[in-house]
Design a binder for these strands. Structure first.
Lengths: 351, 351
DNA sequence: CGGGCAAGCCAAAGCGCTTTGACTGCGCGT
DNA sequence: ACGCGCAGTCAAAGCGCTTTGGCTTGCCCG
């Protein structure tokens, strides 16, 4: 059955009534509604979504503009984010539109998206230090939720973020509590806001304990395996190598572990490792997998919250809102007192 | 400027003419066309895409139905695939619609997509042994391209695949040529067609060389890091451990490398490793990165070909077509003669 | 000089839905 | 007996585009 007209003719009802019946409006009798629903199912009818969108002015579609960097790379965390957001879209009857664009064409893409009225709102990924996007989108009047936060005006728009600062402060305190004083940080790019906050948390905890911040123990770079390996190798080759390391992502942690293993060091005994764990679905670095001590906050969960918040907004059920998720420290076997300090019964390497 | 009507009034032209001018039809004078284009830009006009879709019956949208497994996991290779496909959609003016659905709801999703006329065609990911999807989609009359191939009727629909069988046969021959006789295989799930073809290639090369296929040297499982680690650890603990191993994915290779390093073995000297490399953008296992010898075929490239093929189809410029990509063996430092056989100047470990 | 033809433009008819505003009975209170 | 409100239904007017089928010009050619 192609369209509403035919279906309504077949039922001997007007298009109005059939449409109302199908969309759950109250002014149609239950008997009629049931008859309509049965007929729709029988004839395999579903409204044409383009027509519906044109008539309502709503697209029931959420856009994700994902910038693609040199080397055609999309942030691997993105997969898990959309896995989370996607289930929400599904449940609430929304579509997910993804635009893969060159990083520098991003603002033009938002403008185009607005002009064509292709989506009801967008999710903004990976906020950077002076991010122009919130301002741009506010100017365009395109509803949005930021995954993360920018550094300024965070009160003026919706966001869902992890309390990165506190998470890293606590992880650092944990290591300090174990007796570590030389603690390295393998961080992400610091133009990304979350990375900056993580460093702040790390430094805050060091200062509290009266430990000097040593630039030689900090690296800021892309969060991928080879980079983690390089950074850790460099730290270990230094004059006064760290006894513990804080890693900003699972992928980096993988590289860090590679460097550690290669040097024949045992995590938890010779060196302590704590990694942030976004719960990349294909890589379990935590206690149940590789055994690392991790600071955990699922990125899929963040995706779900972003999606729900944005849909609430475009449907007018919610105003400007924020959500700060707390990460939790999950102890694994990769942490322990520094090598110099002997502790009975502590020897197992990670895994 | 909201719509065509206003723009045409402002120009003193009919909607017809403005529409034609903007869409490049020949029956409008160049002078007028230019005037229209300038005005459109000046007033920031772009056609409402819902209206256009309704009028034309084309959505200019390609759908990707991605099943989500237990543990909310989406195949990590997916990111790279859509990075490739996405650039093509962009270039050719198409949108990408992604539906994240529970694995068992996949066929219902295709039906719904067809009913609503939300997309012009779909890409089918991860074909399995007796895949129902090609038949279903042919029955629905929804154009599609399969990334990979099923086992039967492959001539009846469009696909883009890698010559997995040959790739693995050649990699195996390469190892045999170096003198290896105990060659293990860390494969993906064999209900996935590509994994099955890879094993066939591997076995073919072994048989050619008169080497018995040893089930104890073969594992078939999910292609993720922890699983690669487990498999390799088990192989190395066996009575007659392999001197070489063939790995089906970069992620598994990571686990394999972890197991190898942990045992203090040097890749290329103590044990040879060849991995299939889909060029995951966040993980370079090849010669330039971790240094492994790899069989390489970019998944992003496959994505581009799929997208182009599908768009050609829905635009009626192409009929049923196939594309078989060849993977190439890229030598790294992780392969060499078996440990027993001494060769001058061969000693460097991977990396 | 008139017919034919191409170039350039337009009015109006969809596309398939939602939504407004109006209409019909029917039961009810007075 | 009459009017009123309410439940249930409908015709028709959009939503903003594309596309069909004409309608003017102006020009060329016999």
């Amino acid at each position: 059955m192609a369209n509403l007209k035919e279906l309504s003719e077949k039922l001997g009802l007007s298009q109005t009534t059939v449409s109302r019946a199908l969309n759950g409006y109250p002014e149609v009798s239950e008997a009629t509604r049931q008859r309509v629903i049965d007929a729709a199912r029988e004839h395999n009818y579903a409204p044409n979504s383009s027509a519906r969108r044109l008539a309502t002015g709503k697209t029931r579609t959420i856009g994700h503009v994902v910038p693609i960097s040199k080397h055609d790379m999309i942030n691997p965390h993105f997969t898990d984010f959309i896995a989370g957001a996607g289930t929400v879209y599904n449940r609430r009857g929304y579509d997910m539109l993804i635009s893969v664009v060159d990083a520098e064409k991003e603002t033009e893409t938002y403008r185009a998206i607005k002009r064509n009225r292709r989506v009801d709102g967008v999710i903004v990924h990976g906020p950077v230090a002076n991010d122009a996007r919130p301002g741009l989108l506010q100017g365009l009047g395109l509803p949005f939720v930021v995954h993360g936060r920018t550094l300024q005006d965070e009160a003026s728009y919706c966001w869902v973020d992890v309390n990165n600062r506190r998470a890293f402060a606590e992880a650092t305190r944990h290591l300090i509590g174990l007796g570590h004083r030389r603690i390295a940080l393998v961080n992400g790019w610091e133009h990304m806001v979350f990375a900056r906050r993580r460093r702040e948390g790390y430094e805050e905890a060091l200062r509290e304990a009266g430990i000097a911040v040593d630039p030689l123990l900090m690296s800021s770079n892309e969060m991928i395996e080879p980079v983690g390996y390089e950074a850790m190798t460099a730290f270990l080759a230094g004059d006064d190598p760290p006894t513990a390391v804080l890693v900003a992502s699972a992928l980096s942690a993988l590289g860090v572990m590679g460097a550690v293993r290669e040097r024949g060091l045992a995590p938890g005994t010779d060196i302590s490792i704590v990694s942030y764990d976004d719960k990349l679905s294909f890589l379990d670095i935590g206690p149940d997998g590789m055994g690392l001590t991790v600071i955990r906050s699922g990125i899929g969960e963040a995706g779900r919250h972003c999606a729900d918040m944005l849909i609430d907004m475009v449907e007018g059920r919610r105003g400007v809102d924020h959500m700060l998720l707390e990460a939790s420290l999950v102890p694994g076997t990769s942490t322990g007192p520094p090598a110099g300090i002997a502790v009975a019964g502590k020897s197992a390497a990670a895994r």
